[in-house]
Amino acid sequence: MNKADADVSLLNQAESGLPQEDGQEVAYAAELAAFAEALAGGDTGALAAARAELDAVAGRAVTADAAAIAANFQCMTRVADATGIPLDTPMMAASQSVRDKLDFHQYASATNSKPIPRPLRPVARLLGKAIPVILKRVRLKL
């Protein structure tokens, strides 16, 4: 299993922090992950190939919107790391287990955030389970 597979696998689990129905899967997950990876990796050839694959399986409307999201996170990651903001504590608590599994703590930018103290980790684990459930119930008042 490569890292992209691992991401997709995690996103298919409730503990990813994303609320999901049982058995729900991410459509075109492998193609979307490859597309995002190629853009962020800056490999023009890989990007063209990933785009063609995504076009073929999902259609150009999906590719256009996927490109916008990936581009936005090319921006947001740089805003976060150029300004040196720490991760907000509730977000840290909600995503602790997935960060541990994907070994995000090895990143240089992890030093901007204080880890949750060991005694508080059980509370963080509970919060990590509760927050996605809460978020799932958030509805907009339109």
């Binding site: 996103l11 991410v26 979307l32 995002a36 853009l39 962020a40 996170f73 990143y107």
Partner: peptide, 12 residues
């Protein structure tokens, strides 16, 4: 998924 993958490649 897209956001996570880009963030991961950028080690954010």
């Amino acid at each position: 998924l897209l956001a996570t993958r880009v963030s991961q490649v950028n080690e954010c």
